[in-house]
């Protein structure tokens, strides 16, 4: 029963974070939301009995790729931020 509630909450959060990442005009918020999608997905993989995939997604999807996005954002920070 508890796992069903967690899965429903994860589903809602993943979809909300994905829509926010695509629709927001603030690039920092968009990058953080994309990282959040990966983090929620990695929790979901644990429920799908895939611990290896969960570890990879948590380390790479929400860790390293967010860092690379921020390096690029800092590099191209200029007049247009829309």
């Amino acid at each position: 029963m508890l796992s069903v509630i967690i899965i429903i909450a994860l589903t809602i959060l993943v979809l909300a974070a994905a829509i926010l990442a695509v629709q927001t005009t603030n690039l920092v918020v968009a990058v953080i939301s994309a990282g959040l999608v990966s983090l929620m997905a990695s929790v979901g993989y644990l429920f799908l009995s895939a611990p290896d995939v969960a570890m990879t997604e948590a380390a790479i999807g929400s860790g390293l790729s967010t860092i690379i996005f921020f390096y690029v954002l800092n590099r191209v920070r200029g007049k247009d931020h829309g």
Binding site: A30, V31, S38, G44, L48, V53, S65, F69
Partner: peptide, 25 residues
């Protein structure tokens, strides 16, 4: 915005991975 397009690609990627793991469950 080009960065937003790249973010779109990365969300596409995550969805694809979720489908593949879900099929194996």
């Amino acid at each position: 915005n080009i960065v937003k397009i790249v973010i779109g690609f990365s969300i596409f990627d995550t969805g694809l991975h979720a489908i593949m793991v879900g099929i194996g469950y």
